[in-house]
């Protein structure tokens, strides 16, 4: 997985101390989980890791989606430089999550996995959300941004439906207590509604849109 994270840290994109610090922070939950799993504090470590990586994927998707509102509200343009890294961390945790399912839950029993995908809506939904993340991770490099031009922005709008799908995946898998998926769902709703409200406001006002995000589009 690390190779796909690297592009975010190539010298061309100015490795700043700030970005390095955020990078390290993004790895903390993984370190904590591995520690808990190894120390025996987690009595069912595989279940614990599967659940944790799932919620982190969702958390990092939401963090990625929070960048634009935060930048607008705070005026801190440096935040936009974190967006790709956060998105790639969402993918990173998503890959771990999927790997844990394929390997330690199903032990690569492909017929059983196929059966799951077809028959269990929460698996179908999770798998589809994961697949939608894949092209976003692949096209996250500067080269792809240049190659795809306007279409890059369009493609990367996939983060909206895929994050909704990830939240639905969570809702559909819980047995009874919906508190956790409701929390993620609420945060997502706020982040999406903020965009709708802003769009409505800018339409009402003829004031021009600022292009301070370097033409990458507003996600």
């Amino acid at each position: 997985m690390t190779p796909s994270i690297r592009p975010g840290l190539t010298p061309s994109s100015h490795i700043t101390g700030f970005k390095r610090a955020v990078f390290a922070l993004c790895l903390l939950p993984l370190a904590r989980a591995l520690w808990l799993a190894a120390s025996g504090d987690a009595i069912n470590p595989i279940e614990f890791l599967t659940r944790s990586t799932g919620t982190w994927t969702l958390s990092w998707l939401l963090l990625t989606l929070a960048i634009t509102p935060l930048r607008t509200l705070t005026g801190l343009s440096i935040l936009i430089r974190l967006r790709r890294m956060l998105g790639l961390f969402a993918f990173f945790y998503g890959v771990l999550h999927l790997t844990l399912y394929l390997w330690l839950d199903k032990f690569f029993d492909w017929p059983a996995i196929g059966h799951d995908i077809v028959k269990r809506p929460f698996i179908t939904m999770g798998m589809a959300a994961w697949l939608l993340m894949l092209p976003l991770a692949v096209t996250s490099t500067q080269g792809w941004i240049k190659r795809l031009k306007r279409r890059w922005g369009l493609l990367h709008r996939l983060i909206y439906p895929l994050t909704v799908m990830a939240v639905v995946h969570y809702f559909w898998l819980v047995k009874k207590d919906l508190t956790q998926p409701l929390i993620y769902g609420t945060v997502l709703a706020v982040l999406l509604l903020w965009r709708v409200a802003r769009r409505v406001a800018t339409r009402a006002r003829p004031a021009p849109l600022t292009a301070s995000d370097g033409g990458r589009g507003t996600r």
């Binding site: 009595i43 069912n44 595989i46 032990f107 059983a112 799951d116 809506p121 898998l173």
Partner: peptide
Amino acid sequence: PRWSQATERRIGEFFK
């Protein structure tokens, strides 16, 4: 309806 009951993980074991 949402998951298979064909296998189980015995707590403390790696394989199902």
